[in-house]
Amino acid sequence: MDQNNYIFEIEDLCKYFPAGKKQVVKAVDGINLKIRKGETVGLVGESGCGKTTCGRTIIKLYEPTKGKILFEGKDVSKLHGKSLLSFKKDVQVIFQDPYASLDPRMTIGEIISEGMHVHLKISQKEMDERVADLLNKVGLNAEYANRFAHELSGGQRQRVGIARALAVEPKFIMCDEPISALDVSIQAQVVNLLIKLQKEMGLTYLFISHDLSMVKHISDRVGVMYLGSFVELASNEVLYSSPKHPYTQALISAIPEADPDYESQKERTKLEGEVPSPLNPPSGCKFRTRCKYATERCAKEVPEFREVEPNHFVACHLFDNDGKK
């Protein structure tokens, strides 16, 4: 595919955090990912696997320990001044917690228009009109502009968070578990709203979540993370219908089914043991301590994250021979 079709190209991305004497937590460890313009890439995995840290590092909320991040072909680490300001305008975030991410001292109108003061050269009247339009876009009345965050429900607050992210006309939005703090009845509404806005505005999403059913609904491709690294990356259809990595298989099998009869007969892949400490991960394959297929080789060699089928990448020694066990 033409390089111009990629909005982000991430190569060997690492983010390490110091933890005591000469110890580091490898929160993100060697991520390679290309995100096409207009697509949604889902990022899944257990809590603590590094999903959010990966997303925040990609958009430069965290400085990477090493690796290269290209945004529309430009090296993000070399952006300064106006080019850096332009990058911050083009890349926005919808945060996980709608209660903590909105300033309680500001009106909803002030929250949404805050970024406009920095990035858009428009009059106050135009800002007010734009705030009203954005509120309508996310399913709220224009009168909400005069309210405060504490007067809104969780779902309404998250809609405000979406409006704030859209306010500066971004190209890319990192959705950091945007539905995990919401009632189940509201989650589908928010996800459907994100899909609708993407079609209308040509947005690109990185959708981070541990809700695999919602990720399946919204994503074009899905990456599975375990202890800071990718173990599998494939299209939505392929990953959910034919998962290859044992960890992915366990995650997919845990998705609940609406049909109680089918759910009661469904076979689940159970994982033994606990997630290892990121301070002291296992040698070789990080997943080997919980994998029923683990061999001596898994303890000695780190599996290469490689393409085993067209556009289907897996990091597992089981698939070293043309994608077959």
Rank of each mutant, 00 (worst) to 15 (best):
Y99T: 07
Q187V: 06
E177H: 08
G154I: 05
L33D: 10
P246E: 13
E63Q: 15
L70T: 03
K74E: 15
I218C: 03
N236L: 05
L182E: 14
E9V: 08
D176N: 14
L193A: 05
L70P: 05
D29S: 07
L206A: 06
V191R: 04
Q23M: 10
P104V: 04
K125S: 08
V314H: 12
K74M: 11
D12S: 15
S77L: 15
C298I: 14
R157W: 06
V25C: 03
L227P: 07
K66Y: 03
H217Q: 14
C291F: 12
A142Y: 01
S277I: 14
L227I: 04
F287Q: 05
E177P: 12
R56A: 07
E129C: 09
K270H: 06
E296K: 11
D128F: 02
L140D: 02
P98S: 11
V184C: 02
G323S: 09
L134D: 02
S77T: 15
K286A: 13
I7Y: 05
N5L: 02
S219R: 00
V24W: 06
A100W: 00
K125P: 00
K292H: 12
K21H: 09
T289I: 10
Q265E: 15
S229Q: 15
L43V: 15
F172Y: 14
K244R: 12
S283W: 02
E72A: 15
A315T: 12
S213T: 01
P246S: 11
R290Q: 09
Q96T: 13
T204L: 06
H119T: 07
V222S: 01
D128C: 04
